[in-house]
């Protein structure tokens, strides 16, 4: 059982050679590449951070003023998509984190006794359809659940 970081210097390090080799090869390639010594940089730009903000929210009017970077793409759609993705990831992590107790889903964020708040019922709604996936760890998993039933939400914090 791996409980914490522990430096091991045995044969399990062998695959690491691959990483080193990859570094050597890539470094050789990079050093053989004729990059231009000049960096274009952002000369004459007032605020790069502001420009990033303009690009991210499609503020074209502001982009075209003096001292800005003219031909940056618009990223509003990507921004929204990322927002949705993050939301989905949050939901996913909640689904993954919740446990089942004797077939009943236990809300990951709910403390014992107050499992009927909004978040808990939403999570249990998802869990109902996901029961078989959550239990495919086998019987060992369910015993673990039973063992740890006295400590709900301990891992999700």
């Amino acid at each position: 059982m791996t409980t914490g970081p522990k430096l091991r210097l045995d044969s399990s390090l062998a695959p690491g050679v691959l990483a080193v080799a990859l570094f050597v090869i890539m470094a050789t390639i990079v050093l053989n590449t004729g990059f231009s010594p000049e960096m274009e940089g952002f000369e004459g730009v007032d605020s790069i951070t502001a420009e990033i903000g303009y690009a991210m929210f499609d503020l074209e009017a502001l982009q075209s003023t003096e001292g800005s970077i003219p031909d940056t793409e618009a990223f509003l759609a990507a921004f929204l998509l990322i927002a949705v993705a993050l939301d989905a990831a949050l939901d996913a992590s909640l689904v993954l984190a919740k446990r089942e107790e004797e077939g009943e889903p236990v809300a990951a964020l709910a403390s014992r006794g107050t499992g009927s708040d909004g978040a808990g019922s939403a999570a249990s709604g998802v869990a109902g359809s996901d029961r078989s996936a959550a239990t495919d760890g086998g019987h060992e998993g369910s015993t673990v659940d039973a063992d740890r039933a006295d400590d709900p939400g301990g891992e999700s914090r």
């Binding site: 695959p15 691959l18 080799a21 990859l22 090869i25 890539m26």
Partner: peptide
């Protein structure tokens, strides 16, 4: 992962 990296190295 090791296989992936090996393949990548070979490709490179």
């Amino acid at each position: 992962a090791a296989l992936l990296v090996t393949g990548f190295i070979a490709l490179l």
